[in-house]
Amino acid sequence: MEKNYYTIDPLGKLSCAKCRVPLVKGKAKFMYLDNGFPVELPVCPVCGFVYVPEELALGKVLAVEKALEDK
């Protein structure tokens, strides 16, 4: 069964599925090939779950990975 870590209400507000509290803006860091990128993303204030929007993962994050790699 697919596990959901978050819920989105009809207004687009994100909540942590486990802790049942709204996600808040918090600090996170992407690490790739010895490079770190401090960002702020929706996080659960209780368990620390970080929500990475799909368009971010497949957009900028993927672009950064590719910029750090030779082919």
Binding site: V24, F37, V39, P42, L56, K60
Partner: peptide, 10 residues
């Protein structure tokens, strides 16, 4: 990316 994200480092 929505109001809860800040990704200028990227």
């Amino acid at each position: 990316e929505g109001a809860l994200a800040e990704t200028s480092a990227l």
